[in-house]
Amino acid sequence: MLQVLLTGLATGAIYGLVAMGYAVVYYVTRVINFATGQLLMASIMVTTVLSMHGTPVALALAAGVATSTLGGVVVYFLAVRPVLRFNRLSFAWLVSTLGVGIILESLAAVIWGTSSLPFPNLLNGRDVSILGAALTWQQILTIGIALFTVVGFEIFRKRTLFGKIGMAISSDPDIASAIGANVTSYAVVAFALGGLLVGVAGILVGPLSFANPYLGESFGISGFVALMIGGIEQPAASMGGGLILGVLTILANTYINAQASDWFPFVVVMVVLLVTPNGVFMSGGAIKGIWRRFQTSRVEAKS
């Protein structure tokens, strides 16, 4: 069981990073970037192709992450800003970001072909045993980076002026701009940060998935499901959603069958949306409700 849990957490950390990529963008701009999965793919493909051509792995990894980061900014200027300039309340970005994602995917297939390419190995060495459960260094690194990212993001959001301005924009963009916040600059930063997060997710999952122009779609969908499970309003909650999804997916694979991960996430998200539509970690969500009941019962037990 511990093995399933830890493997699930490692898988979920990837989903969580992708979900955070969505959430950071949504947090600041109220836009969902449906090209997020393809940005992950871009990071994997660029890293793979550069390392195949002899570029040092560290440099290739940096280039991969830089590509997805820059890609996020390109998506904003190509698919979001023109739409919102035309009509601030338009939802046309639903289609335009999806369109840019499909174009990125097709472009990658044309440039690098549709065959899977081997991603460079990041961490070699033996598995690590934790209370009898075996984890690779790659999985430990993935969980560590996910936790570091979510903690770092929360500290940055709540303790720095930049983060607080982001919170203000999230809460009321009109008034935030009336106090001096350049909302467009923050939107650019949010799209870049979203791209950075999925770029990191890409280089972490690359060694397990190979490099293929079409792999963005499945990670994009899983990340979106994680976003819905955790809650779209808080980037940290979306990481929680990713971890839950990862553990449940591995549980389904282990105890139902090997194909269960294809459909099980959708069952989970449907149940979550029925029970707690804002996500399990959001205000009034299931986890908070359970915690509150637990605290109430403790107080009652003491009295």
Binding site: K164, M167, A168, S170, S171, D172, I175, A176, I179, G180
Partner: peptide, 17 residues
């Protein structure tokens, strides 16, 4: 239209951006 997700002092300091 205060930023309700932030403290009173944070709201004030944001005004002095």
């Amino acid at each position: 239209r205060l930023f309700l997700n932030q403290t009173v002092e944070d709201n004030l300091r944001l005004g002095a951006m």
